[in-house]
Design a protein around this nucleic acid. Structure first.
Lengths: 209, 209, 209, 209
DNA sequence: AATGAATGAGCGTTCATTCAT
DNA sequence: TATGAATGAACGCTCATTCAT
């Protein structure tokens, strides 16, 4: 079910209509094109053509090309948080929460390769500076809070939570990237193994739990 | 000594002269500019100006702009391998080799932020397709061989070596990126902690070694 | 009372309503915007926004953008004639009529800088060709008749009346422009001095009245 | 001999070559096109075509379109000063200097209608603000000095010299404009008559010389 | 080998105008 | 009447690449 989440989410952005709005079409098209061609290989004229709108129309919904990127970033970040913590409400063991979150996020990336590639391009482009200051603190915090809570409750090794976050997040995207890029076709149990690696690495005492 | 390695390596590429050749100047300049402006924010004219050559001259050394990127990628990949396994000749314990390699690579990235940013941009750009086929098998293999050997000798958990490679490499770049991007200023002991996480995660039995 | 005249005149264009009609609002807004931004710095979308109407509405009142310009030109030309000869009915000496007309027109421009700037832009733009043929003969004639009458009655030097008209009109706009453009802040007596220059220049015999 | 002066002047800008340089061709072409189409009716693409260069080439000589306008303005201002005071070195009576300067400038405009139209468009466009601060003080001063000197020596009526300057300059351009615009075909003696008007207007005592 | 003027396709963006509502 | 979303031609400008010198 590739890219399902994105379509679903996008559809919810416009409550009144069943047909996807122009704005959604533009966002979705841009994301797809970026996957294949990169930011700069994706001219407005191409977005317009593939989205079935006139080039000028894009400028009714976005002040400029960068704004499309920024908005895409925001949407995807929210989807990532949404995917990771989808069952967070249920009272599960911490370890289970970690495994579920891990697998959810990897699966999100594998099902939405455009999102993975976008996020990685974004994070290694001059855009990061524009966006990091801004809008997605909420979703980022959720991520950090989870690890902080794990340390506070004694499940995880004590350390700066950013260290764990960097390690875990880098690991997830890297694995997903191997898969998406076709370098290796990870099966579900493979993904579990990597989750195990990370859990064994970060849990409080190597011998227990 | 930031960016030292690159200069050094570059210098060795041209055996005959003590002064850096034009080709080296072009490569070095391009790398620096990409750090600040990204691939597409780095026009040939700017490279020419900063490198002190005419735009046309660049086309004596490279058939087109993409070729500069491809070559830079090759050079940096070699440097990374070189950095990781610099003391590999000495007979050390496997665990020590892992820690040394880990720290060496992180330090390489922290000392050569341009290289880190370049590699990440490269890996999330349409260029990957052009390059992965080609030239860097040797250095990549070294990386893989190390993990395969670890599994064969019983130091590491048994699994597809690409899984470990993806996890470890993704983790390293992510941590280095946090540091380089200024999101967190990791001290040496912080980096050790992350190495520990990974080692605890991948070693054969959590309780031993 | 800057720009008062225009509002007043505009209001009279629509006899039925006390509130300014949409057409008037469009004309007035366009004139104001042109003062600050020039013809081509004044897009229809901006006129619409500032005039409080939809862009499409403008096309109910004018066939295209040029037509707004043409109509503005006509309105302002009429205002200029109106301003110059406002007290013409009273029987005054010819010299006094000249001075009054002169001062009236300069004051009109100083009180309606938008009109001055518009007229000058118009006269030095490709629009002149479109307009001169057309609609404003009446007001132009009044201007010419005044000078012709002055020559016929022996008050002015004999010459092609267009020469005098060009000289006097060019002089007035130039002086008003210095003032409006902020290059010099002319007092009332200054303006009188320039009127005197022109009168001394054009009167029949230098020694007499 | 239309536009002769401009060609001549332009040729002198590039001392080494007999053939007009690209830069000169761009300037000259732009001036011609502006006469017929106005600033905004003169796209870069048209300038390029008529000047026989590629559009991109224009950007080797000027940073942007505005810069062409600014430079044209500077060149024309210098030509105007040059035209007016061409025989200023010879010791002539003040009145004669005035007449000569007057006639020279009118003739310059009549022979270079593009320059006249350009100057008028420029002076009634948002460009004025950019340029008035800047570069042409020298030529402007010459103009003012001449009138100031006339007052100091008792040849002219005492008043703020800007008043006289505004009156005289406005008069000249207006007259030339009538001629160039085809509204009236002034003969040489006509132009003399207007010069006489201005002289009679500004000279110290109406009865004397 | 080295230059840098010249090219022109292609970019992001604007805006006068249309038309379904 | 009035709207404003939609259009798409046209704009100013960039930049990888070429080539005469």
């Amino acid at each position: 079910m590739p890219e399902q989440d994105l379509v679903y989410l996008a559809a919810r952005m416009n409550v009144q209509s069943d047909t996807p709005s122009k704005k959604e079409a533009i966002l979705k098209t841009t994301l797809d094109l970026i996957k294949d061609n990169g930011f700069h290989g994706t001219p407005i004229s191409l977005i317009a053509k593939k989205a079935g709108v006139a080039a000028g129309t894009i400028y009714h919904y976005f002040p400029n090309k960068d704004a499309i990127i920024i908005e895409l970033h925001k949407v995807i970040k929210e989807q990532m948080a949404s995917a990771m913590f989808s069952e967070a409400g249920t009272k599960k063991e911490y370890k289970q929460q970690f495994f579920d979150g891990w697998m959810n996020l990897v699966r999100y990336f594998i099902n939405n390769p455009s999102a993975l590639i976008f996020i990685q391009q974004f994070n290694s482009s001059p855009f990061v500076k524009l966006a990091s200051a801004g809008d997605t603190k909420a979703s980022v915090n959720k991520f950090y809070e989870f690890f902080q809570a794990g340390m506070d409750k004694g499940y995880l090794k004590q350390m700066e939570y950013k260290l764990i976050a960097a390690a875990v997040f880098g690991c997830i995207t890297s694995v997903a990237n191997y898969h998406v890029g076709g370098r290796y076709n990870f099966k579900n149990e493979d993904l579990c193994k990597v989750a195990n690696i990370m859990w064994d690495g970060i849990k409080y005492r190597s011998a227990k739990v």
